[in-house]
Design a protein around this nucleic acid. Structure first.
Lengths: 229, 229
DNA sequence: CATACAGTACGAAACGCACCGTTTCGCCAA
DNA sequence: TTGGCGAAACGGTGCGTTTCGTACTGTATG
């Protein structure tokens, strides 16, 4: 999707790779056609749902949006950037109502991450998108903001709890967020379906008290089968 | 890389997608040329390290291996399968010496997962590989076995601890494995480098006691910066 | 305030190229 | 004789870029 070509390992001596970086000088955004912009994002979202990330194509988007391929290339450096912009408009972002009850707040945070992952076809495209972002780390920030827009606020929330003594003073609050984010993303990808409400309770309980109790209550079989072979 | 074509959402009425599944009838493996087989795996591993997963190509592998493209297509259904086979030979698989000390054993398990993720360029290619496996779930089992070859043995180990009362009776041991696997994979992908030894202790401590103490000791800054924007 | 004039985003179309996945054809070893 | 093999070619898709003429936009001008 992005950057040079050649996969045989022998780099071309005549075409150093920085030649393939068009530097992407931003065009005059005041003159940007609003309709084209929106049509592209629309088409991207639609096609994402229909064919997924991997088979998503600039050519296909251009066809669907009734827009020139060149126009898309003019405004977005690569597929990942386009998809991230298209999805970030689609993402639910309710504010976290801090109740002061650490357990409840944490549960809200985990639930929000799951909702994010569940939004649209995100659950299935996330690894592919992440892979592209890894190749071109330019979009790392945007990606992080997409998948964890509330990250810093959750970290702050936890930090406050830590400073107030509701968490041990040596708690690594940042890693706490990574743990539930990573687990949610991993489970969603491997099981091909985002984790259910039961996992919320289990994760929070784990983060706060250790161990992982099996969910109690009327639906004891909420967790789907594990990724193991 | 795999499966049909078309990215414009309108499925071809004339070419239903199952027509693109060549069913891949296995050739006579007794007649398989050992040298070609090995040359392909060699070339795959080499190119993986040089160009990564996304730019890895059957054509490139064939060139590098001095092998016909048709030969590769004859023996491997898609890129993911080939890569998984190439990597599984490369993966460290020391047996887990069960000490009976739950904390120590768990630490070994986490460390093994990190080693797996660190092996070769795995850390960077994992999301891309996972994305392909999601598209064609045929390889899900092989993938799981690659990334968590010891999964069932770790689960068994934890189950034993649970039955012996060293874990609460309602512990979801399978999710415990998912938590550390997911976190390790996520951290490695987002930070572009596998987590260090400090995270091992933090994860195990979390799984057993809850919370996430900051690593103590001479190197208090082992953890890399977080994925947050 | 209306008008002329740049400047530039735009759609259409084409470029050469890389790979795809498949097929055909001898060759040669089992 | 069988069937895996290398070589080579097939039509097809998508890439990323370029060229062209058109249409609109912001700004200067009468």
């Amino acid at each position: 999707m992005d950057t040079p070509r050649r996969q045989d390992g022998r780099r071309s001596a005549l075409a150093p790779e920085y030649a393939a970086q068009p530097d992407h000088i931003a065009p005059d955004s005041r003159r940007r056609r609003r309709e084209s912009h929106e049509a592209v994002l629309r088409a991207t979202k639609d096609l994402l749902g229909e064919v997924g990330y991997q088979r998503l194509t600039f050519e296909g988007i251009a066809r669907r949006a009734g827009v020139s391929k060149a126009t898309i290339y003019r405004w977005w450096p690569n597929k990942a950037a386009l998809v991230i912009e298209a999805l970030s408009g689609e993402v639910p972002l309710p504010p976290i109502h801090e109740t002061g009850d650490l357990e409840a707040d944490l549960r809200t945070a985990v639930r929000l991450t799951i909702e994010l992952v569940s939004a649209m076809p995100t659950c299935l495209i996330l690894p592919a998108l992440l892979a592209d972002v890894i190749e071109d780390p330019t979009g790392t920030g945007a990606f992080a903001e997409l998948i964890e827009p509330r990250r810093t606020s959750v970290v702050k929330l936890l930090e406050r709890a830590r400073l107030e003594g509701r968490l041990p003073p040596d708690t690594d609050t940042s890693l706490m967020v990574d743990v539930y984010s990573g687990t949610v993303v991993y489970l969603a990808a491997v099981n091909r379906i985002p984790p259910g409400e039961a996992v919320v309770g289990q994760l929070v309980s784990l983060l706060l008290h250790g161990h992982l109790p099996v969910p109690k209550g009327p639906a004891p079989a909420e967790r789907e089968e594990s990724p193991g072979a």
